[in-house]
């Protein structure tokens, strides 16, 4: 067998690593527009799914989205106003938090009076498939539908993700995922943190637009 000197090995590895790195960064740069378009498309699909548009043709999504949804911004908070197929107005707000292994996020559709959840979609970066990863499934997200965010006195109570429903008289409890305590808590935490801010932002913007409307009338 041929003998290789240390210098040879060193140069050999360096050359290969540089060649490989160049090739990979070239590929990443060339393919980035496609990847970003896919991610954007998926976000739109998630917002539409949260607002209960189901089983849309993938190619139709950008068109449908631009037709029924408008994005608004108050401070740092984005939200989307979506007209549903049965002619109602829903507000879809993004939420983001921490799971067990990485970020989790979702889109929550709120009724026009901002009191009830009309739909939800969750997604995750790296939760365990079959355990925490189940938050992305319909079975979990559909259990949020119809839950109320406020008690009778109008205090924000958020949605509790619980092991066993003890007392659901306030209609704000959903079943946690078995084997995924930390991910379930993450979902509860991000709703508790993000929803009040989003609701305030939507209220602020609707008041603002009402003022504008009365001003233009005058």
């Amino acid at each position: 067998m041929r003998k290789f000197s240390n210098t040879y090995i060193f140069i050999y590895i360096t050359v290969i690593v540089v060649a490989v790195a160049t090739l990979l960064s070239l590929a990443a740069t060339l393919l980035r527009p496609y990847r970003e378009a896919n991610i954007k498309n998926e976000t739109m699909a998630q917002i539409l799914t949260a607002a209960n548009y189901i089983h849309q043709d993938k190619k139709e999504i950008p068109h449908l989205f631009s037709e029924v949804a408008t994005e608004s911004e108050v401070g740092d908070i984005h939200f989307f106003s979506v007209n549903t197929s049965d002619g109602r107005l829903l507000y879809v707000v993004p939420v983001a938090g921490k799971g067990l292994w990485g970020p989790i996020w979702g889109y929550i559709a709120l009724s026009e009076d901002l009191k009830t959840v009309e739909g939800a979609v969750f997604s995750h970066k790296s939760e365990t498939p079959g355990l925490g990863g189940e938050i992305a499934k319909d079975a979990f997200s559909s259990s949020f539908k119809g839950k109320s965010l406020f008690d009778e006195e109008g205090n924000f109570i958020s949605i509790k993700v619980v092991k066993t429903k003890t007392d659901d008289s306030r209609n704000n409890e959903v079943d946690a995922l078995s084997g995924a305590t930390i991910t379930s808590r993450g979902v509860e935490e991000m709703l508790y943190r993000c929803l009040p801010e989003a609701i305030k932002a939507i209220q602020a913007s609707t008041i603002q637009s009402q003022i504008q409307q009365t001003q233009t009338k005058e």
């Binding site: 590929a27 990443a28 393919l31 496609y34 990847r35 896919n38 498309n41 998926e42 993938k58």
Partner: peptide, 9 residues
């Protein structure tokens, strides 16, 4: 990368 770009689902 190719899968992410062209076969995202």
């Amino acid at each position: 990368q190719v899968l992410q770009a062209f076969f995202y689902e």
